[in-house]
């Protein structure tokens, strides 16, 4: 079985991010790390291949400056190889443009299954996986919390507000994996060392056969018009216990209709 995982490399969320004041785009010129929300997809893929008794996990990523620190982390977890698309004309690419690029890279691999995180931790559009499926003309199932393969069929528990739906679908298919549904493994020392030697195919737009006018700022159909500071949260009410704190807390929760 061949599984492709879409992997986004993002600026370290632990560090203060910065926007380009002209384009309102997140600056991504430094070291990028594996988006935690994609680590669940990587882990899920590795588990599926292990359960199938063999197969291959390939990664697909689009990032500036041939940045592959985050890809190396995913390779260190156990993925076999990767395609990295990097091209200066991709700066400012919107969700659909990203989907076109990822789809073009995925097409080269002819996978049985494509996994992606539900949404990235920096952009949060939550639309790219389904757009990739759309471009590839494949079915997609969102919010997968449990996945199993049975022959040429994938069985998915699709998370809902109330619980989950059981969904079945013929392969090939794209699934977006809900964050937190598996425990991503930590790269071992040997995994880290082995990752250095795993093949990463670096491609630009020309190599992928993508028209420059359909991606980047030029091809973007989305535009960030304005950025405003998030409002600071108001401090909450502090209840000091003078013997009636439990009543006041109960009243407060009652007002919120929680109880």
């Amino acid at each position: 079985m061949k599984v492709v995982v879409c992997v986004k490399q993002i600026p370290d969320p632990a560090l203060p991010g910065e926007l380009n004041p002209t384009t309102n785009l997140l600056k991504r010129d430094g070291k990028l790390i594996l988006d935690e929300s994609d680590s669940y997809g990587v882990e899920m893929a590795l588990q599926l291949v292990e359960a199938a008794g063999g197969g291959e996990v390939s990664l697909v990523s689009m990032a500036p400056n041939n940045e592959m620190s985050g890809l190396r982390t995913a390779l260190a977890m156990g993925a076999d190889d990767a395609i990295l698309v990097s091209d200066e004309n991709l700066a400012g690419t919107d969700a659909l443009g990203t989907a076109k690029v990822l789809a073009a890279a995925i097409r080269r691999l002819s996978p049985d299954l494509i996994l992606a995180g539900v949404e990235s931790s920096d952009g949060y559009t939550g639309t790219v996986p389904e757009m990739v499926a759309g471009v590839l003309d494949l079915p997609s199932v969102t919010f997968a919390k449990q996945i199993s393969i049975d022959g040429d069929t994938v069985k998915v528990q699709r998370q809902t507000e109330a619980g989950y739906d059981d969904v079945e679908c013929k392969l090939p298919v794209l699934l977006s994996v809900t964050a937190g549904v598996v425990e991503p493994r930590y790269p071992s020392f040997k995994g880290i060392m082995a990752a250095k030697k795993k093949p990463v195919e670096a491609l630009d737009l020309q190599g992928l056969g993508i028209d420059l006018n359909t991606v980047g700022l030029v091809g973007a159909r989305q535009e960030t018009i304005r950025v405003t500071e998030a409002e600071e949260r108001e401090s909450g009410e502090i209840i000091v216990d003078d013997g009636d704190a439990h009543q006041r807390i109960a009243e407060f929760l009652g007002e919120l209709k929680v109880i």
Binding site: A76, Y186, P187, S188, F189, I192, K196
Partner: peptide, 14 residues
């Protein structure tokens, strides 16, 4: 040194 940075990162994760 890339290896050393990777080792630091790996140990921090654990």
């Amino acid at each position: 040194n890339e290896d050393h940075e990777a080792i630091r990162d790996g140990v921090r994760r654990v």
